[in-house]
């Protein structure tokens, strides 16, 4: 059903790669940008597009699936309307991120890393957002948040679930 769109995206990414590196560049080099484009377009890697991706780049479906499953960013299921990525790495730990994770679980029944797509918000773990001086940090959709606290979390959850 999405075949035409996938072919269009694949041609675009392969053409961009070859324009940059020359006609001999292996098409597989376009795989990550292509998967990112697909996820941007559909919100996730729609499983029935994998065969088309493999065909277009002249690689096996196993190679595509292997790449999709390797990288944490790629999803094979629909995402929630909003995503909160809570930093769980050391610098944010030193500033209380674990308490925030516990708060999300106990107060809002949102256990980081166990989001359900039918909810307005899914909470994921992330390991470092490069905001280590102003932690705890989180990324709410595309917005980076510093000095996150329980109050702000409550407001984000309430807003996202509306």
């Amino acid at each position: 059903m999405n075949t035409d769109k996938i072919i269009e995206l694949a041609s675009r990414e392969v053409a961009a790669l070859k324009a940059f590196l020359g006609p001999d560049a292996p098409a597989q080099g376009a795989l990550l940008p292509l998967l990112q484009a697909i996820q941007h377009e559909f919100g996730y890697i729609v499983p029935d597009t994998i065969a088309t991706v493999a065909d277009e780049l002249n690689i096996s479906q196993a190679e595509v699936r292997g790449v999709v499953s390797f990288y944490h960013d790629f999803r094979l299921e629909r995402a929630s309307r909003h995503t909160l990525k809570l930093c769980r790495a050391e610098a944010c730990q030193s500033l209380g991120s674990e308490k925030l994770a516990a708060h999300l679980t106990s107060r809002h029944q949102l256990e980081p890393g166990h989001g359900k797509p039918d909810e307005g918000l899914s909470v994921e773990n992330v390991y470092c957002l490069g905001n280590c001086g102003l932690g705890p940090a989180a990324l709410f959709d595309e917005t980076l948040i510093g000095r996150l606290d329980e109050q702000r979390l409550d407001a984000i959850v309430a807003g996202a679930r509306k």
């Binding site: 080099g29 376009a30 990550l32 940008p33 780049l57 292997g66 390797f70 990288y71 944490h72």
Partner: peptide
């Protein structure tokens, strides 16, 4: 090139694999 959430791709050979469109091994 944009990574895809794999810490290991900061290791130089994994990073090269990733640009080549492979698992970052």
């Amino acid at each position: 090139r944009i990574g895809a959430g794999a810490y290991i791709c900061g290791e130089e050979t994994s990073l090269l694999e990733s640009i080549e469109g492979k698992r970052g091994q």
